[in-house]
């Protein structure tokens, strides 16, 4: 990466924040119906019922999904950056390490028991199930990878493949146990989407995302040291076991919580950190906040596109992130291959 291609992190952060604000406003004002923020105030002659309807659409439907998109995007991208840094593996991300599919299986089991995604208690149970599933999947991956004493980094990915396959088999099995309506709910949920997000669910996204980001930022120096190898990190004073526990814990919490509410979102955790590293943000104190901003922006746009491309229908969110993420990732691979 030539020095000239570096972009000052602070400038980039300002641009991202501005883009986020503008995009959030745009997202609030776009959708299947023409309801808009300005409409609420600009046309006083509108009849009260239409106004109340527009108000409900904006505040109860669109606002929660905009906020949820921001939080899920930030959580996923930061988790991706954390896992890549922690395991010094460019391909580590919540999806490839089996965390997402483990979370999906965990939440799927809860859905089977609960009957339907209903009130808050069910959502919470789903989150707990998802976090437990994510944790189980990760510890399986980790124990398998530790058998690869020589190359744990590669072992993680291989174990991730195995655990992903097992978790998919598990979710496949669930589909036979579901009722028809559960099956429909489950299938839509596994494709990812902000459609069902209620306002009451937001704190359950905000808290885990906030905790994960806080932990990650506190461990930014440790992550920097780890970029220079585990041995060097230890020499520089990093308590490897503690750092691993904290960062993995934070990521599992954030990813599990988000998967339970909006389903698995692919490629954001993988691609966003890579794109930002290309701008020269390699120190984690810069990389992680930028990941939070850019991840939020990416998922916000993915959700916006999902809502407006086939209006009044809606595309699954995971489909949109994959449609943009996969080619971007392929481009990054191609670019890196050329440099090597």
């Amino acid at each position: 990466m030539p020095v000239s291609s570096e972009i000052p992190s602070r400038g980039l952060a300002v641009v991202l924040v501005a883009a986020l604000v503008a995009s959030a406003l745009l997202a609030l004002n776009s959708g299947a119906t023409p309801a808009s923020l300005w409409g609420l105030y600009a046309s006083p002659e509108q009849d009260a019922r239409a106004l109340a309807r527009d108000r409900a659409i904006l505040l109860e439907l669109r606002l929660p999904r905009v906020v949820a998109s921001l939080l899920v995007g930030a959580a996923t991208a930061v988790s991706g950056a954390v896992l890549q840094g922690l395991f010094r593996n460019a391909l580590a991300d919540p999806a490839l390490l089996g965390i997402m599919s483990g979370a999906a299986l965990g939440a799927g089991v809860v859905l089977l028991g609960a009957g339907q995604w209903g009130g808050l208690e069910v959502r919470l149970l789903g989150q707990i199930g998802a976090i437990a599933g994510a944790a189980a999947a990760f510890f399986l991956v980790w124990s398998l990878a530790c058998r690869f004493a020589a190359d744990r980094t590669q072992g993680l990915l291989l174990a991730g493949i195995a655990v992903n396959a097992a978790a998919s088999a598990g979710t496949g099995l669930l589909t036979f146990l579901y009722s028809d309506s559960q099956l429909r709910t489950f299938v839509f949920w596994t494709l990812g989407g902000m459609g069902g997000v209620e306002r009451a669910a937001l704190p359950f996204l905000l808290a885990p995302t906030g905790i994960a980001l806080w932990i990650a930022l506190r461990q930014a120096r440790a992550l920097d040291c780890l970029a220079l190898g585990e041995q060097t990190a230890f020499h520089l004073g990093v308590d490897l076991a503690r750092t691993r526990r904290l960062l993995v814990g934070g990521s599992l919490l954030a990813v599990g919580a988000s998967v339970a509410i909006v389903g698995p979102i692919s490629f954001v955790g993988l691609v966003v950190p890579h794109v930002l590293r290309l701008t020269g943000a390699v120190r984690h104190a810069r990389l992680l906040p930028l990941c939070a901003l850019f991840g939020a922006l990416a998922v916000l746009w993915a959700d916006l596109l999902a809502r407006i491309l086939v209006r009044p229908q809606e595309l699954p969110l995971g489909l949109v992130t994959a449609a943009f993420g996969a080619p971007t990732f392929a481009y990054l691979l191609w670019r890196r291959g050329k440099q090597a």
Partner: peptide, 17 residues
């Protein structure tokens, strides 16, 4: 990993992030 000389020296001095 794209780190620079100054980054290593910062980390060695325990420069807070």
């Amino acid at each position: 990993n794209w780190f620079r000389v100054s980054d290593l020296l910062d980390l060695a001095t325990g420069e807070t992030d």
